[in-house]
Design a protein around this nucleic acid. Structure first.
Length: 258
DNA sequence: ATGTCCTCTCTTAGAGGA
């Protein structure tokens, strides 16, 4: 079972690239972030024509998350992260798909930091930690996939010294990510490739992709019950080089069928 | 400070977000 995550940076602007990638790699489950489309502007028919059943939570202009499945209907569990009914951002959606609980998340960026945006990010992260602990306690086979906006370690950024004051790399943000791992979640790519430079995002600025000036900020975290099912993982880096590409590349894992 | 891309609007240029 292949599960992928892809920050599309505008699903309607990205539709040709998304459909080309789906056709090429045919992941079973796909988590999308940054739809940048209101609920009614999601390209539902095009996604269905590609063989996927979609579940999505849109929002005008910003954010927006979706789960696509070609292995039966994704059964919605929730479409918001618990813990703050006042939070209006569409940044989390969760569904049961083909026997796995899939949480698709778009963690706040947090820049400029310090400031209210960093505060929002840290509060959101605290809610994620609470929910993630409950998922582990439930014993369900679960994947938390998405754009975490966290550079976990120095190995995950082309030039760490340039990022020390950035909200993606601040000590308190990295510590929160570390807490997820301490709860028992497994960072799939690092599990299989502990020492390799692997990036999932390259800025549109300054010719970043050509220079491989990238960051690893898109992650697929596995609950303890899935840890031993992980058989492969990777980044579809070539997609970042396509015409009209997102600034992120798709990231995927392959789980052994139970 | 800058670079680029996407979306929306007090829309065809500029602002906000990333």
């Amino acid at each position: 079972m292949r599960i992928a995550t892809y920050n599309v940076n505008g699903i309607n602007a990205r539709l040709p690239v998304l459909l080309r990638w789906l056709e090429e790699t045919q992941p079973d489950v796909v988590c999308l972030q940054e739809l940048k489309a209101p609920q009614e502007k999601f390209p539902e028919q095009a996604i269905r024509n590609a063989g996927y059943q979609p579940l999505w939570h849109g929002q005008k202009s910003w954010n927006g998350v979706a789960i696509l499945s070609r292995r039966g209907e994704p059964v919605e569990v929730r479409r918001a992260l618990p813990g703050d009914p006042e939070d209006t951002h569409s940044r989390y959606i969760e569904a049961a798909v083909n026997g796995v609980l899939v949480g698709c998340l778009y963690l706040p960026n947090g820049n400029p930091a310090p400031g209210p945006k960093l505060d929002y990010k840290l509060n959101w992260f605290a809610r994620l930690l609470t929910h993630a602990a409950e998922l582990i306690d439930s014993g369900a086979p679960a994947v938390l996939a998405g754009d975490y906006n966290v550079i976990p370690t120095e190995l995950d950024v082309y030039k760490p010294e340039s990022w020390v004051d950035d909200a993606l790399f601040l000590p308190e943000v990295r510590a929160a990510y570390q807490q997820l791992l301490e709860q028992g979640w497994t960072d799939s790519l690092r599990q299989l490739y502990p020492d390799e430079k692997i990036y999932t995002f390259w800025d549109y600025f300054r010719n970043a992709f050509a220079r491989n000036a990238g960051l690893r900020i898109d992650h697929l975290l596995l609950s303890p019950s899935l840890r031993d099912s992980l058989v492969a993982a990777g980044v579809d880096k070539h997609v970042r080089g396509w015409e009209k590409s997102s600034d992120h590349a798709p990231v995927w894992i392959e789980l052994r069928s139970p």
